[in-house]
Amino acid sequence: MLGSGIINGLIVTAKNFVGSYHDPKRMVTVQYPEERAKLPENYRNFPFLITENATDPMGTLRCVACQICEKECPPQCIYIEKSKDKKPDATGKPQLYPAVFAIDTSVCMSCQICVEVCPFDAIKMDQVFEVAATDRFTGLLLDREQLAKPNSYFHEIHPTDAAEVDTRLATERQAAEEKAKAAAAAKAAAAAKAAAPKAAVKPAAEGGPTA
């Protein structure tokens, strides 16, 4: 009959009305500044730089200032200046580091291309959304101090991704160490080998002039 749908709809909304007072599970919104909805893991907004050690963020940046991201960035919002000197990175290898690393978040479109192209897992996507600033020229231009965030923060916001990156880095590091060890061993062996004939040759050589 005409009108039965209207009555059914009114019953549904009446149930919502009563239920919203005693059933917190019905509520679809949260009281924002005090309560926050859990962001989905794959949510991304603006890149940040990963540091290994939270106590010394500028000393342990993963970034080696290779400038690939700067070249790939579609809206050209990244600006990097290479350092003049080298610092040992996490593996102890001396590397360049960014003397200036700035991202203009008013230009950034959160496309994640910088993350895709980074060979060092040094830049990752953040989950910030409260990025309002009072001055659009300086407030939105983030420098490397503002961009650097520890690896533990990365674990917090993208756990799966961070775990995967960490295992990969660990195996790489291990492989590098093993390679270094092997290289060192080979070097040592080669050195020993080189030393042995030398030692063998030496007397001969020594004996050479005497002969």
Binding site: T13, N16, G19, S20, R26, Q31
Partner: peptide
């Protein structure tokens, strides 16, 4: 306020 409650909002 009522519309909110009818739609499970505050």
């Amino acid at each position: 306020k009522l519309l909110g409650r009818l739609q499970n909002r505050l």
